[in-house]
């Protein structure tokens, strides 16, 4: 079932809510205000809204400078342009300088759809995760985004928010609370655990249902925060089920698979397989088509689960 509200609406609702109390919240855009729908922020707080034009590097630097004066800038662009395009500026002016900037990269992975390969980030979380102390989070749905936004604003430091822009599949109930630094166990399973993020969470839940019908007890763990990873939750899942399938809308090289295997290998080595983009570039198409291209369907997750179970000793 789709959420009622678009993620971008919820994002701007949260900014407006927080900005009432927190006078330091500022918003900077680079000509995609109309895509992330922060016009409402501009209308209400014109003195705290800046549009630098199509100049992402400058946007990041301006945000860093505002942060040195106590402001809490939220800046956004499409995923590739919010990260890859201005990576060194994020690395030096923000992260190395220990500034308090929140970066929103929209249209993650195949959700970039018809914008195609130039706009389709399969590497954004991977490269952001390489920046020391950068918190990397992919809110699953509107309920979670609403719960996480105040924590993101309150956290002092760089946070990268990988944001599905439109209506996503509703996974959690409105009003549920989430901890920015914990994973959410949706279902425990003794045969295998599917560790998923973003659009892959609802698919993982569906795959677990299918597997149940075949007598396989599959759990689902949503590690929405990729860094710092909730090591306890991941280790517990590995111990409980003895096999893991990672499902991600990202390149598995450097992505969630890498983050999970780092924890599993060190704490409870069990077989890990992946569903995700296997070192490929993006291309144009709608999500169902692209899910076929990159083998990211529910059936792919179920199939991988059976494979990983066969690898158990």
């Amino acid at each position: 079932m789709q959420d009622v509200k678009e993620m971008r609406q919820v994002y701007c609702d949260c900014l407006l809510d927080m900005a009432k109390e927190n006078k330091n919240i500022v918003v900077i855009e680079a000509d995609l205000m109309n895509c992330i729908k922060t016009e409402r922020f501009k209308a209400q707080y014109p003195e705290r809204f800046f549009n630098v034009g199509i100049a992402e590097a400058n946007m990041v630097g301006v945000a860093a400078g505002l942060s040195t004066c106590g402001k809490v800038p939220f800046i956004s662009s499409f995923g590739p342009f919010a990260t890859r395009r201005c990576y060194d500026q994020i690395f030096i002016s923000v992260a190395y300088s220990k500034q308090n900037v929140k970066i929103v990269g929209t249209d993650p992975g195949i959700s970039a759809e018809v914008n195609g390969g130039t706009h389709m980030p399969f590497e954004d979380m991977g490269i952001m995760r390489l920046i020391p102390e950068c918190v990397c989070v992919e809110p699953t749905d509107a309920a979670m985004l609403k719960s996480l936004m105040p924590q993101i604003a309150a956290y002092k430091g760089l946070v990268y928010i990988r944001l599905f822009r439109k209506k996503t599949e509703k996974v959690f109930e409105d009003g549920e609370n989430f901890d920015l630094f914990k994973a959410r166990s949706i279902k425990e399973g003794k045969d295998v655990t599917i560790i998923a993020s973003g659009i892959m969470v609802s698919r993982a839940i569906e795959a677990a249902e299918i597997l149940k019908g075949e007598g396989i007890d599959a759990g689902v763990l949503n590690t929405y925060t990729w860094k710092p990873m909730d090591k306890e939750a991941v280790t517990a899942a590995a111990k409980r089920s003895g096999a893991i399938v990672v499902a991600e809308n990202h390149n598995i090289c450097g992505g969630l698979t890498s983050a999970i295997t780092e924890v599993v290998c060190a704490n409870c080595p069990v077989p890990v397989l992946s569903v995700g983009v296997n070192d490929k570039f993006g291309e144009v198409g709608k999500m169902p088509y692209l899910s076929n291209v990159y083998n990211m369907n529910v059936s792919d997750i179920a199939e991988r689960c059976k494979q990983v179970i066969s690898l158990k000793k």
Binding site: N58, V62, A64, G65, L66, C69, S93
Partner: peptide, 10 residues
């Protein structure tokens, strides 16, 4: 320079 602009805007 971008950072200096941010300081000036603040």
């Amino acid at each position: 320079l971008s950072c200096a602009i941010g300081m000036a805007l603040a």
